[in-house]
Design a protein around this nucleic acid. Structure first.
Lengths: 195, 195
DNA sequence: GTCTATACGATGATAGAC
DNA sequence: GTCTATCATCGTATAGAC
C-alpha cells in the first residue's frame, strides 16, 4: 500500500475543517489554524485566498454530494418508499463517510458571505423540494401516512444530524446495522407492532 | 389587558437572543447588540456583567425546563410508551414556546466558558441518561422495538431540532396538529400500515 | 444610566526580505 | 513558500464626566 502524501493545501483544509467543527467558523482564528498546521499565519496565503475559501469548499462539496445523490434517486425506477429509503441511506452515507466535513456543512454554512450564501441556500431549496415531491407522491399513492410533507421532511433530515459522532458512542454497532435500524425506526417508528 | 413594560435588561436579553440565533454567539458583537437596543455598547454594563452572562442565562434556563419536565415524567405512573410521548411533547413545547431561546440553547452552548460548560454538559448527560432508561425499559417490556437505545434517543431528540422555525413554513398547522402528527411519526413511522 | 473616550488584545490579511 | 513586521479594524470591557 503506497503512502498517501497530502499536499499542504489538503492538510490546511483538513485541519481547518476539524477546527470549524470543534469551535465553529467565527471562533476559529487563522492563528489557531497556523499552530495546528505548523506554519505562521501569513504563510497560508500562498496556498489559499482567504479563510472563507475553506468554508466555501466544505459547504459546496457536501452540497454536491446531496445534489448528485438526489439526482440518482430521482432517476431510479422505484417506489416512493424505496426512494425514501435511498435518501435516508444517502444522508447516513454523507454523515459517516466524512463526519467532520458533514458537521461543518450542517452548522457553519450561515457564515458564508454573499453571493455564496444565496447560492448555497438555492441548492438546499432545490434539494428539499425534490425530497418533498417524493414524500407527497408517497402520500398520494398511500405508501405513506397522511402527515404534513414538510413535517416529515424536516423530521427525517434533522433526525440524522447527530450521526457525525455516531462513531464514538455506538462503536459496537456496524455501519450497516445503524443503517438498517435507522430505516426501520424512521419508516415504522419505535413502537413494536402487535403480531 | 395591562401593557407589559419590559425592563431594559429584559430587552437586552431578548435582542441578544435573536442576534445569537441569527448570527451565532461569537459572530454577535456588543456593537451589533447596542445598535439593536438603541444604546452605546458601554451602556450595557450597567445592566449586565458580560456578554457571556446572557448566553449563560439562555442555556441554563432552557436546560432547567428540560430537567423539570423530565422529573415530572419520571414521577408519573405511566407506561414507557406514554412517558416517551410526554417527552416528545416536552421537546415540542420548549421548542415552540420560545423558539429563539430554544435555538440558542441548541446551537450555542458550546461557547460557554468553564466551569459553565462542564455544568451544562452534566445537566445534559443527566437528562439523556433518564431518557435512555425509559427507552431501555420500553424495549424490555416489548413496548418498543429492539433498536439500539442511544440510536433511538439521538434520533428522536434531533428530529425535533427544526421546530423552532415551524411557525413560518407550516403556519397552516395548529400546534396540537403538529404535536399529534409528530408523535405518530416517531412512534409509528412514515409508512402507512396495511389494514 | 448613559454618554465619550479609551484601553488593549485579537482579528484577517498584506508587504517585502530571503 | 516561509518568514518577520505590520496594518487597519474590530473585539469586550472599563474610567470617569454628566
Amino acid at each position: 500500500m503506497s503512502s498517501n502524501p497530502k499536499s499542504k493545501k489538503q492538510i490546511i483544509f483538513q485541519e481547518a475543517a476539524e477546527l470549524f467543527r470543534d469551535k465553529g467558523y467565527p471562533a476559529t482564528s487563522m492563528r489557531d489554524l497556523a499552530e495546528r498546521v505548523g506554519l505562521k499565519p501569513s504563510s497560508f496565503y500562498s496556498h489559499i485566498k482567504s479563510k472563507e475559501e475553506i468554508l466555501q469548499k466544505i459547504c459546496f462539496d457536501s452540497a454536491e454530494k446531496f445534489t448528485i445523490g438526489m439526482k440518482e434517486v430521482c432517476d431510479t425506477e422505484a417506489t416512493n418508499k424505496e426512494k425514501l429509503q435511498l435518501l435516508i441511506r444517502l444522508h447516513i452515507k454523507v454523515a459517516t463517510e466524512d463526519p467532520t466535513t458533514a458537521t461543518v456543512f450542517n452548522d457553519e454554512w450561515r457564515h458564508l458571505s454573499e453571493p455564496h450564501l444565496s447560492n448555497f441556500l438555492a441548492l438546499r431549496r432545490d434539494y428539499e423540494s425534490h425530497f418533498l415531491k417524493i414524500i407527497e407522491a408517497g402520500i398520494s399513492t398511500q405508501e405513506f401516512k397522511q402527515i404534513s410533507p414538510s413535517l416529515v421532511l424536516y423530521t427525517i433530515i434533522n433526525s440524522l444530524r447527530w450521526l457525525h459522532f455516531a462513531n464514538k458512542p455506538t462503536k459496537e454497532l456496524s455501519a450497516t446495522q445503524i443503517e438498517n435500524d435507522l430505516i426501520q425506526l424512521l419508516l415504522q417508528g419505535v413502537e413494536k407492532n402487535v403480531l
